[in-house]
């Protein structure tokens, strides 16, 4: 499902015009980003939490050339699903 589909689905659920939902969604994203930049964990109950995590610097060795490279520290986006969501997901059968 793409962005537009999501907006349409939420709009029909809340009985509100799509452009309003679009604005709200944008506000949510902006709010989420500003909180994350401030170093907070944003937890959506029943869904999961978003967090910026710091990865420490490390030394990597190229296995063939043995050239060692120092990889600097970085910060990455991390999403952790909530326990309730995990239980829910167990119910769907695996289809391959």
């Amino acid at each position: 499902m793409k962005h537009k589909g999501l907006v349409a689905a939420v709009a029909s659920k809340t009985n509100q015009p799509e452009n309003e939902i679009e604005n709200m969604l944008q506000a949510t994203i902006d709010m989420l980003k500003s909180q994350l930049v401030d170093g907070n964990i944003v937890n959506f109950q029943g869904f999961g939490s978003f967090e910026f995590k710091r990865k420490e610097e490390r030394l990597s060795v190229h296995p063939a050339t043995k050239i060692r490279t120092l990889i600097p520290p970085k910060q990455v986006m991390n999403f952790r699903q909530s326990a309730t969501l995990k239980v829910k997901l167990k119910e769907i059968p695996h289809h391959e």
Binding site: K13, L25, T28, F47, L85, K88
Partner: peptide, 10 residues
């Protein structure tokens, strides 16, 4: 909005 948003994604 948030509730509908989360449930839709789920």
């Amino acid at each position: 909005f948030l509730k509908a948003f989360i449930t839709t994604i789920e």
